[in-house]
Design a protein around this nucleic acid. Structure first.
Lengths: 182, 182
DNA sequence: CCCCGCTGTTCAGTATTCTCATCACCCCGG
DNA sequence: CCGGGGTGATGAGAATACTGAACAGCGGGG
């Protein structure tokens, strides 16, 4: 249960609004608002969006504020990094998964022999990395290069790009992407 | 219906995950994921949070990305500014309510005779403003000053502060607060 | 004192989300 | 040709979000 309730109540009271008044403006019933604020209910994204709009806020700044706490810890053991890829062909293991307000995705990437990514045309982000093992052919906007241990890359994620393991064994990359919506 | 579905699907596919695999990791059923991605269902905040965690993202960056579009328009007529206060005693009228990724709250504030705010101890933000009509006594950290037309203020919102209309008539302030979670 | 208007909470009923099982499709191997 | 293992979509039922109508408490005025 994400702790949106307390934050919402503070926001509403700061506006000097009662539950009924906010209900009227947002189109959400005052009883629902009561339940949400006391965290007895987790609102749907639609409902929360309606309430936030009536309060003059946006999802991103509401949650930015909510998640602005300090990280629980600074260190992560190799084996506890959270797998966010498929692990069999290409593994992406995430650093700082419980860092509430992280602004980048720091990844330990591991490519099985022959593994390659789709051609990705992603969004407004930047990514960089260093090959730490094996050999990876990186293609950005049609231009390819084979990177080996110590070689690196840095490009705008909006350019079409892909990765291919060209080493007979396993290849590894340490990379970072920002913002973390990779 | 906030358009989270398409963004979620793109994110999942970028990770090379099937719906079942993501369901396994997030604890949300694959059928729910299917419905959410096709926008036939608005997930609860809890459910969305579980999915985002499994994908290695946070609420704030997910929505920051979602709301990163351009504003629909640059101009707002005085009478269309959205009221986010109570209008009777103190009115807060918002500029740019449909600006998807606004990073500040620009307000036209209007104080009825005798109106005053509670003592507010808010959060990590900065606010500034200029009095455009009447006279307002602003108190920050115990220090008070009466500001008249053209006078201004700028302080850290974490300091306890309050506003009081000391003019016999209506007073007005144009203010800005950042971030917009006022 | 009662009554009004305000506050937020609670409860019964309805609508929606969500789960689990099934279904349909596609590709690969035999 | 028929499995097997993968994909995502669907449908019935259980769980939960949500509504609208009470209810209880508080402060002010007659």
């Amino acid at each position: 249960m994400a702790m949106v309730g307390a934050k919402l109540r503070a926001l509403r009271q700061r506006r000097g609004l009662g539950m009924r008044e906010l209900a009227l403006r947002s189109g959400v019933s005052h009883s629902a608002i009561s339940l949400i604020e006391r965290e007895r209910m987790s609102p749907s994204v639609d409902t929360l969006g309606a309430i936030l709009a009536a309060l003059g806020t946006t999802f991103s700044s509401f949650f930015a504020d909510l998640e602005s706490g300090l990280p629980s810890r600074p260190f992560y053991k190799a084996e506890e990094l959270a797998e966010i890829g498929r692990a069999d062909r290409i593994s992406y293991r995430l650093v700082g998964m419980d860092y509430p307000n992280r602004r980048m995705l720091m990844l330990a990437e591991r490519y099985a022999p022959g593994a390659e990514t789709e051609l990705m045309i992603t969004h407004n982000a930047e990514e960089a990395g260093i090959v730490t093992r094996g050999a990876v052919e990186v293609t950005v906007e049609g231009r390819s290069q084979v990177l080996r241990q110590g070689d690196a890359y840095y490009f705008d994620s909006r350019l079409p790009h892909s990765f291919r393991n060209v080493d007979p064994g396993v290849s590894e990359i340490v990379s970072a992407i920002t913002p973390p919506t990779y």
